[in-house]
């Protein structure tokens, strides 16, 4: 009767309940945080970037729906050991692919929150003031936002 894929497949729920590197990084060199104000999802990412522009260590914290938090865990797990160039070349489409189950445009925003935060974090050394723009690359997916409704 259904050809709908289960968004909350086992792999997603596993990451939600047993996330990779959930917490703060004491000696972070780079860090950023952003939210989706209409649904209240928040993701904070701490990075330790070495002298060769490689991500030595990555941690995340935050609050929100299964998709926003599980996708952040998957991203953090993937990104360690990668070079900054590799991170910059990691597209939104690849992020959606990493998550797995196909998402409707509204839920893609949840999945891309951590990706946006990561793209900003690599440009946000901890000693500097955070950039004005919390948005990272200005990529828009899908239709109207969740949450603003009657």
């Amino acid at each position: 009767m259904s050809n709908e894929q289960d968004i909350y497949e086992e792999h997603v729920l596993d990451h939600y309940e047993d996330p990779y590197h959930r917490g703060e990084l004491d000696k972070a060199t780079h860090s950023h945080e952003a939210d989706n104000p209409l649904c209240g999802d928040v993701v904070h990412i701490d990075l330790k970037i070495d002298s060769e522009d490689k991500i030595q260590e990555a941690w995340f914290s935050g609050d929100g729906c299964v998709i926003s938090q599980a996708s952040a865990s998957m991203l953090i797990e993937t990104v360690e050991g990668k070079s900054l160039d590799e991170v910059r070349n990691f597209t939104a489409e690849q992020m959606l692919g990493l998550f797995g189950p196909k998402l409707t445009p509204n839920r893609q925003k949840c999945c891309l929150l951590s990706w946006r935060v990561l793209q900003s974090a690599i440009h946000s050394p901890v000693d500097d003031l955070p950039p004005d723009d919390d948005g990272g690359p200005d990529v828009h997916f899908g239709g109207p936002s969740l949450g603003e409704e009657s």
Binding site: E4, Y8, I67, C110, E149
Partner: peptide
């Protein structure tokens, strides 16, 4: 999270609303 509740209820056939409802 409310959006996970609504998403899963939709999977079960129930249309509800989640968020801050303006």
């Amino acid at each position: 999270h409310a959006h996970d509740i609504a998403q899963e209820l939709d999977h079960l056939g129930l249309a509800v609303r989640a968020g801050h409802h303006c």
